[in-house]
Deep mutational scan, measured.
Amino acid sequence: EDYYQILGVPRNASQKEIKKAYYQLAKKYHPDTNKDDPKAKEKFSQLAEAYEVLSDEVKRKQYDA
């Protein structure tokens, strides 16, 4: 799945936009606030993985290549 789609940001998003999108979605899908939703944990880990790659310039360049 596309990391940009997961975070809901365009491919040319700035680091600030990526961070903002991640924090909004992380708050929304955090397992502690969605105890009754088994998919929230999965969504949250996808968000974390996408953010880890896109927030790191080197990893992001490799991902975009």
Rank of each mutant, 00 (worst) to 15 (best):
A65Q: 12
Q5N: 09
K43V: 10
D64I: 02
A21W: 03
H30W: 10
E42C: 11
P10A: 12
E42Q: 12
E1H: 15
R60Q: 01
N12Y: 08
I6N: 03
D56Y: 02
V53Q: 03
K27C: 11
A65T: 08
K43R: 12
P31F: 08
K16H: 15
L25W: 05
S55Q: 06
E1Y: 13
D2K: 04
L7T: 00
F44I: 06
D37T: 05
A21E: 03
A48C: 10
Y23A: 12
Y22G: 01
D56K: 02
F44M: 10
K28T: 08
V58E: 14
K27D: 11
L54P: 00
P31M: 09
L7S: 00
K20Q: 15
Q24W: 15
A26R: 15
V53E: 03
T33S: 12
V9F: 01
D36H: 12
P10S: 11
S55K: 09
K61C: 09
K16Y: 15
A13L: 01
A50H: 00
V53K: 03
V58G: 07
P38W: 07
D36S: 10
K41E: 10
R60W: 01
D36M: 09
D32V: 08
Q24N: 12
E17N: 06
Q15T: 13
D32N: 10
I18C: 02
N12G: 06
P38G: 06
Q46R: 14
D56E: 03
A13P: 01
I18P: 00
K41H: 14
S45D: 13
Q15H: 10
A40N: 09
S55A: 07
K35A: 14
E49I: 14
Q24V: 12
K19Y: 14
E49T: 12
V9G: 00
N34S: 08
E52P: 02
Y4Q: 00
K28A: 10
K20F: 14
P10W: 06
S55N: 06
L47R: 02
F44W: 14
V53R: 02
E42A: 12
E42G: 06
K28L: 14
Y63M: 02
Y4S: 00
P31H: 10
V58Q: 12
Q15P: 13
V58A: 15
G8C: 07
L54F: 01
E17G: 05
K59M: 06
K28S: 08
Q62D: 12
D37R: 05
G8E: 06
S55C: 05
Q62R: 08
D32T: 11
E42M: 14
V58H: 09
V53H: 04
D32R: 08
Y51M: 05
S14I: 05
P31Y: 09
N12M: 07
Y3H: 04
P10Q: 11
E42S: 09
A13R: 01
R11Q: 07
S14C: 07
I6F: 05
L54E: 00
D37H: 06
K27M: 13
A50I: 11
N34K: 06
D56G: 01
A48D: 05
Q62P: 02
A65H: 11
Y3E: 00
V53P: 00
V58P: 03
D2Q: 04
K39I: 14
K59D: 02
E17Q: 12
D64R: 01
E57L: 07
G8Q: 10
D2M: 04
L47C: 06
V58L: 12
K28V: 10
K43F: 13
R11E: 04
Q24F: 15
Y3R: 02
Y63Q: 02
D32A: 10
I18G: 00
D36P: 05
E1K: 10
L54M: 03
A50R: 00
H30S: 11
L47K: 02
A13K: 01
Q62C: 10
S45K: 13
P31N: 13
G8P: 00
Q24H: 14
V58N: 14
N34H: 13
V58D: 14
Y63P: 02
L47A: 06
D37C: 06
E57D: 09
